[in-house]
C-alpha cells in the first residue's frame, strides 16, 4: 500500500513537470535555422524530394550507421541469450497440426507481393514516405508469414547472416567512396543527381537506402527467427 502511494506521488510530480512544460509551450512560427537549412538546401544540393530521408541518409548518415549497428547488436544479443546450449537434447519434434490450406495458399500468393512492396518502399525512399527501415520491416513481415506457415522448418541463419554482412559492408563502402569521390563520409553525390523527382535521382540515396533496408530486414528476421525457434519448454 505504501509503495502504491509512493508511485502515485512520483507520477503526480512528473505530471506537474509535464503540465508546466505544456503550459509554457509556444509553437514555432517559422522554421529554426537548422530546419530552414535542410528545407532550402535538400533539393538543390542532394536532389531528394523527401527531406526526412535526406536528413537520415545523408546529413545524419553517420547516426544511421550507428542506429543500424545498435540493431545488429540487439539481434546478436537476442541470438546469444536465446541460444540453446549445445548440450541440450535435440528439440523434441512435436507433431503440430498442419497449417491449413488457407494459410499455405495465402503465403504462396502474398509472399512475393509483400517482398515486392518492401523493395518498392525502400527504393522510393527519396521520393515518397518510407525508406529502408519501413521496407526492412515489411520484408521481415514476409519472413514472419513464412514462419507461421512452416513453423517447424529451420531457416538458414547463414543466408540471413550473409545478407546482413554484405549489406553492412556495402553501406560502409559507399560511405568511404563518398570521402574519396565527393564531399565526405556517406555523401550521396558520388553519382549524378539526375532529374529531381525521378526514381534514378538523388545520387546514391536509393542505393544506400536499399542496403539499409536489406540490413534492417535481415536483422528483424533474425530476431523473429531466434524468438520463434525457442519452442518447447
Amino acid at each position: 500500500m505504501i509503495k502504491r502511494f509512493a508511485v502515485i506521488l512520483l507520477l503526480l510530480g512528473i505530471g506537474a513537470i509535464f503540465t508546466g512544460l505544456m503550459v509554457n509551450y509556444v509553437p514555432d512560427k517559422a522554421l529554426n535555422v537548422t530546419a530552414r537549412y535542410y528545407a532550402e538546401q535538400t533539393a538543390p544540393d542532394l536532389g531528394a524530394a523527401n527531406i526526412v530521408t535526406a536528413i537520415i541518409v545523408t546529413y545524419r548518415g553517420l547516426d544511421t550507421l550507428g542506429e543500424v549497428t545498435v540493431l545488429f547488436l540487439t539481434a546478436a544479443i537476442v541470438g546469444l541469450v536465446l541460444a540453446r546450449g549445445s548440450s541440450d537434447e535435440a528439440p523434441a519434434r512435436r507433431d503440430l497440426p498442419p497449417p491449413g490450406e488457407l494459410l499455405l495458399t495465402g503465403t504462396r500468393l502474398l509472399l512475393p507481393l509483400i517482398l515486392l512492396f518492401g523493395a518498392y518502399v525502400f527504393t522510393h525512399g527519396h521520393l515518397t514516405p518510407g525508406g529502408g527501415f519501413q521496407g526492412g520491416a515489411i520484408i521481415a513481415s514476409g519472413m514472419l508469414l513464412m514462419l507461421l506457415s512452416h513453423p517447424l522448418r529451420r531457416f538458414g541463419h547463414r543466408l540471413i547472416a550473409i545478407v546482413e554482412s554484405i549489406a553492412g559492408l556495402a553501406f560502409v563502402g559507399i560511405g568511404v567512396l563518398g570521402i574519396a569521390l565527393a564531399g565526405g563520409f556517406l555523401d550521396n553525390r558520388i553519382l549524378p543527381l539526375g532529374t529531381f523527382g525521378e526514381l534514378f535521382s538523388a545520387g546514391a540515396i536509393p542505393i544506400i537506402y536499399t542496403f539499409v533496408g536489406l540490413k534492417v530486414g535481415a536483422e528483424f528476421s533474425s530476431m523473429l527467427v531466434n524468438l520463434s525457434e525457442t519452442e518447447d519448454l
Binding site: 514555432d28 530546419a35 535542410y38 532550402e40 535538400t42 527531406i51 537520415i56 540493431l71
Partner: peptide
C-alpha cells in the same frame, strides 16, 4: 519549401527512436 513544410528534424529523430 521554407514557408510550407513542417520541421523535419524531430521526425527524423523519432524515426530513429522507433527503430
Amino acid at each position: 519549401a521554407t514557408a510550407r513544410v513542417i520541421d523535419p528534424v524531430p521526425q527524423a529523430l523519432v524515426l530513429t527512436a522507433i527503430v
